[in-house]
């Protein structure tokens, strides 16, 4: 790891003043689970590290009648175990509880999960060509890509967006509060937060380098919601694909309306599967309608040389997430 100067601000405003307008030389440190590994790989080589862990206000969780607000520094473990959040937003809490093992969940934060860099093994190997590190080509397109994106049309970089909290939050209509220089505050819907980068000056999200995500607000609308991930190992492992769904009604024979279906690990950003949502919108969720939604979810998929199987996994994950949300029997747990 390249050595750096360490800063420990105590307020968000102070933190922002320590950031720079361009990515690279200054990085924000929260749980560290992503940044420190990137630094050890020399993929990140900041000369300055701004720790957010001395800022008390980033760790609060407030659940109100109309919305819930979670500080960006809230740990994954707290999200997973929070009784009110579990009742209201199982899509979020189940996903949080599935991340890594207890160590990761005690360390990793909400903001870090949303802003983390991707897990592409070429991106993380400084000796492999990678567009995001200034290289001339993406090694994954013709290389080892069994975990990469399957929605690849128009993408030069085929990373798979890794955040599994993003899917639930997008499905639930959440937005992030962002603090910039001169106390400029803005709110961005998480549905519009993510970005497909193609070069070293871009990130997987639309946060500017001198902006800080301070909190995420989730509207409380009584939505039925759930998440499901396909993972090879039950111990700490990344999902191969992950899906979150949210809708009104949809249980006990009631039709589902306002359906949102969001996918992760399938494209450079979370994918809002509109065709899939349409396939079940205003319908009763059954094995058949959920299956149809799964099929619709992979419309337009253009898998790479080794990850065609992920198309099938998306179909299955969408179906199962819908069935979990609708309270239907989990036939796959036989």
């Amino acid at each position: 790891m390249k050595n750096f100067t360490y800063f420990r601000p105590t307020t968000p405003e102070q933190a922002v003043t320590l950031l720079e307008a361009r990515w690279g030389n200054t990085e924000m440190l929260a749980g560290g689970t992503d940044l420190l590994s990137l630094q050890k790989q020399y993929v990140a080589q900041p000369g300055r590290v701004v720790s957010l862990n001395g800022i008390a206000g980033l760790q609060t969780v407030v659940v109100g009648e109309r919305s819930a607000t979670l500080g960006a520094g809230v740990t994954l473990a707290r999200i997973a175990d929070h009784a009110d959040l579990r009742r209201l937003f199982p899509a979020l809490t189940a996903a949080a509880g599935d991340i890594g093992g207890p160590q990761i969940r005690n360390m990793g934060t909400l903001g870090g999960n949303l802003c983390q860099r991707n897990r592409c093994w070429y991106f993380r190997d400084e000796h492999s060509p990678c567009l995001l590190r200034g290289g001339q080509r993406c090694s994954a397109i013709e290389g080892e890509n069994k975990y990469h994106a399957i929605f690849t049309a128009n993408h030069r970089c085929v990373l798979a967006s890794p955040s599994t909290l993003a899917t639930g939050l997008i499905a639930l209509g959440a937005s992030a509060e962002i603090l910039g220089p001169q106390n400029r505050r803005r709110t961005v819907e998480l549905a519009k937060f993510f970005f497909a980068p193609t070069g070293p000056t871009e990130r997987e999200h639309t946060l500017a380098a001198n902006e800080l995500m301070t909190s995420v607000t989730i509207p409380v609308r009584g939505l039925t919601n759930a998440a499901y991930e396909v993972r090879q190992r039950q111990s700490s492992d990344w999902p191969i694909v992950q899906v979150a769904v949210a809708f009104s009604g949809g249980r006990n024979g009631e039709k589902a309306t306002g359906v949102k279906i969001v996918l992760s690990h399938v494209a450079p950003t979370p994918v809002i599967a509109e065709a899939a949502a349409r396939a079940v919108d205003n319908r009763i969720i059954t094995d058949a309608t959920a299956t149809a939604a799964g099929r619709a979810a992979v419309e337009g998929a253009k898998p790479l040389t080794q990850n065609g199987y992920k198309v099938r996994l998306v179909e299955v994950a969408v179906k199962r997430a819908l069935m979990i949300a609708a309270g239907l029997p989990r036939y796959w747990e036989a």
């Binding site: 360490y6 440190l29 560290g32 689970t33 420190l36 590994s37 720790s51 862990n53 473990a77 207890p102 160590q103 990761i104 005690n106 360390m107």
Partner: peptide, 19 residues
């Protein structure tokens, strides 16, 4: 590398000593 920090397990390899 698992250690407890204030009673909670963390990966000590991925915590800065300073912190």
């Amino acid at each position: 590398c698992t250690v407890m920090l204030d009673g909670k397990v963390v990966y000590a390899c991925t915590v800065l000593a300073i912190e």
